[in-house]
Simulated scan of single mutants.
Amino acid sequence: MLKPVKKEQGKVSLYSNILMILTSVHHAYGAVVYHTPWRMHILFMSVPMILVTLLLNRVLQQKADRSGWAWVFGSLVLLLSVMMIGTYEGLYNHVLKNVLYFGGLSARGMAMFFPPSMYELPNDALFEVTGMLQGVVVIPLVIHFIGWVRGLLNSTT
């Protein structure tokens, strides 16, 4: 694997792990504040994801070629970090929710997009800030992920 690809991969690993740590803290805090212990379920995904990402990044940093492990690494980061946490949890569940709420969307409209049985309307600054930060961290993650994939694809030609 070329040096620029390894550098991008390292950044992908870093931002993915920042996102997973942030979501772990966010959900643990939400479980306590909102008396919803089910929010802790995310730790069963985020902690293993951190460990697997660190391990695969280390293995791939030592490999000189593209391997199936690179695609395992990329698939996990894309599905779990980018799509599930960064896009859905960060951008939809928090950034969009706060924009609509503070933008004046009616209570009925908020309930339609964010059913009260699943969502809390903004009422705790730390919970909302850590939630929105997930949407912020996904941006550099996506940028470096795209650079990493391009580098992998170009290294075959």
Results as ranks from 00 to 15, higher is better:
33 V>T: 14
103 G>D: 08
132 M>Y: 00
106 S>D: 14
12 V>M: 01
13 S>T: 12
76 L>K: 03
133 L>E: 07
31 A>N: 08
157 T>W: 09
10 G>H: 08
81 S>W: 02
132 M>H: 03
136 V>A: 12
123 N>K: 15
49 M>L: 12
93 N>W: 03
154 N>K: 15
15 Y>T: 05
152 L>C: 02
88 Y>P: 02
114 F>A: 07
142 V>W: 01
49 M>E: 02
128 E>T: 10
1 M>S: 13
28 A>Q: 03
61 Q>F: 12
109 G>R: 06
41 H>I: 15
50 I>V: 11
131 G>D: 02
142 V>Y: 00
45 M>W: 14
156 T>S: 11
117 S>H: 14
75 S>T: 15
110 M>K: 10
124 D>M: 10
26 H>N: 08
115 P>W: 10
62 Q>I: 05
129 V>L: 08
148 W>G: 02
52 V>S: 07
96 L>M: 13
78 L>I: 14
59 V>T: 09
19 L>K: 01
29 Y>C: 07
112 M>H: 14
118 M>I: 13
79 L>K: 01
135 G>W: 02
113 F>C: 00
71 W>E: 14
127 F>M: 13
128 E>M: 09
99 V>H: 02
134 Q>F: 02
77 V>G: 00
76 L>T: 05
2 L>R: 13
104 G>Y: 11
24 S>H: 03
82 V>Y: 02
1 M>Y: 13
100 L>D: 06
52 V>W: 06
139 I>V: 15
13 S>K: 07
42 I>L: 07
129 V>S: 05
31 A>P: 04
103 G>P: 07
112 M>V: 10
96 L>P: 05
75 S>H: 11
79 L>A: 08
129 V>C: 01
137 V>R: 00
80 L>G: 01
110 M>Q: 12
27 H>T: 11
67 S>Q: 11
59 V>Q: 05
74 G>A: 12
15 Y>M: 06
131 G>E: 00
143 I>H: 07
141 L>Q: 04
67 S>L: 11
69 W>G: 07
8 E>S: 14
156 T>H: 00
76 L>I: 11
24 S>W: 02
129 V>T: 11
43 L>E: 03
134 Q>C: 09
48 P>H: 00
101 Y>F: 13
129 V>H: 07
28 A>H: 06
75 S>V: 14
14 L>I: 06
43 L>P: 01
99 V>I: 15
86 G>Y: 01
82 V>K: 02
18 I>Q: 04
144 H>W: 07
64 A>F: 05
50 I>E: 04
67 S>F: 12
89 E>Q: 13
141 L>M: 06
118 M>L: 13
9 Q>S: 10
145 F>A: 04
111 A>T: 09
21 I>L: 10
110 M>T: 09
9 Q>W: 04
29 Y>N: 05
104 G>M: 13
45 M>E: 11
157 T>G: 12
79 L>I: 05
46 S>D: 04
94 H>P: 08
19 L>C: 03
144 H>E: 10
140 P>D: 10
101 Y>C: 00
87 T>L: 13
98 N>Q: 09
38 W>A: 15
116 P>S: 13
74 G>I: 03
103 G>T: 09
79 L>W: 02
63 K>C: 07
157 T>M: 10
52 V>I: 15
60 L>D: 02
28 A>T: 13
140 P>W: 09
139 I>K: 09
120 E>G: 03
44 F>I: 08
82 V>S: 00
47 V>G: 02
130 T>D: 04
21 I>M: 07
106 S>C: 13
135 G>F: 03
134 Q>W: 01
136 V>N: 00
152 L>K: 01
